[in-house]
């Protein structure tokens, strides 16, 4: 099979009504001895039909954030404060039964490991049927029919409904999971490192397919990954997370061309280019912080090349005061003491 289609690389022209809005979301991991704040006051909105990328290193809280939107946090994780507004309604306080309907119907999720998301002893078709019939009153026959259509949507022969997960390749399994996530036509699909475990050619194939389906069906995507260069290609808008906070957010092209936060600049400079001259890169000194004991002030200050004692007043703010995420230009937000509009 060949994939050929046209995509619209530009963001939706106007900012449409948000599908989901996070307001000052705080997520803690609470144990008897200590509390670790994994997500610290995150505000983010995702418009209908928009692909929003969330990038950050391991332990920055990006997966916790995705799980919070999907409302699948389990103890010790808990939403301590803030709201997750879905179509204007806060879903944080919803009861279990309401949430069960909300998940998959309104928001669905694709995880990194398809093998863990699929039941190894059930045929793929039956897994679709179970999922569809948990949400809709349809006959088994009709559900299976729809499962076949969904498989074809992601480019898999519908006869594969009879296959067990282990009989499918890694890329196929991930496409089965994507098809399942789309089964109930959700408005938002959260994808948490969906292609990280795959080879680069298979990854490319799946990204093209996600983009194609998204253009065709119009769902919004929250795409979580550590691979910033992938997001710059795929997403309309990108948010960068560091130590539990969003530190910069902008349309993908603007983030690539005019990054303002030193961490974003450092992250962009951590990917060796595939063409052009090979210059020595510096990466970012140090290592990501331990969220159990985050640095004071700006959390990036211990690794920041601009945090020096040259300007005493600025230095005092950098080490003592947390920078706010401020709008510095249209659709461009940055949390840095040195950056102003």
């Amino acid at each position: 099979m060949t994939l050929a289609f046209s995509v619209t690389p530009d963001a939706p022209a106007e900012r449409v009504t948000p599908v989901v809005e996070l307001e000052n979301l705080v997520v803690d991991y609470v144990t008897r001895t200590r509390t670790i704040r994994a997500v610290d006051g995150v505000s983010l909105s995702i418009g209908a039909g928009e692909i929003v990328g969330l990038a950050g290193e391991s332990g920055c809280g990006k997966s916790t954030l995705g799980n919070a939107v999907m409302q699948i946090l389990r103890p010790p994780a808990q939403i301590t404060s803030g709201r997750v507004l879905f179509g204007g309604e806060n879903v944080v306080e919803r009861r279990r039964e309401e949430l069960r309907k909300f998940r998959w119907r309104n928001v669905s999720m694709v995880f990194q490991s398809a093998m863990n998301a699929l039941n190894p002893v059930m045929r793929t078709g039956d897994q679709f049927v179970d999922m569809i019939r948990a949400h809709e009153r349809v006959s088994k026959h009709d559900a299976l029919e729809r499962a076949g259509d969904l498989l074809e949507l992601v480019g898999i022969d519908r006869r594969r409904l009879r296959a067990y997960p282990h009989e499918l390749s890694g890329g196929m399994r991930q496409r089965v999971v994507i098809a399942m996530a789309l089964a109930l036509r959700p408005e938002l699909v959260i994808m948490d490192e969906p292609t990280t475990a795959l080879d680069v050619v298979v990854q490319r194939e799946i990204l093209q397919q996600i983009r194609e389906l998204q253009t065709e069906l119009g769902f919004a995507v929250l795409f979580i990954t550590h691979d910033l260069s992938l997001l710059l290609e795929l997403a309309h808008r990108v948010a960068i997370m560091y130590a539990g906070e969003i530190i910069e957010e902008a349309p993908a092209a603007r983030l690539r061309d005019e990054p303002r936060h030193p961490y974003t600049v450092g992250l962009l400079g951590s990917f060796p280019p595939l063409h052009g001259p090979v210059e020595r890169l510096t990466g970012i000194p140090g290592a990501p912080p331990d969220l159990a004991a985050p640095p004071s002030g700006c959390r990036f200050h211990p690794r920041c090349p601009h945090c020096t004692r040259d300007d005493q007043a600025l230095y005092a703010r950098q080490i003592g005061e947390r920078p706010l995420l401020r709008v510095i230009a249209d659709e461009h937000r940055v949390a840095c003491h040195r950056v102003t509009a």
Partner: peptide, 9 residues
Amino acid sequence: PDGERNLEP
């Protein structure tokens, strides 16, 4: 993945 371009099929 190449951040310098858009996802051209």
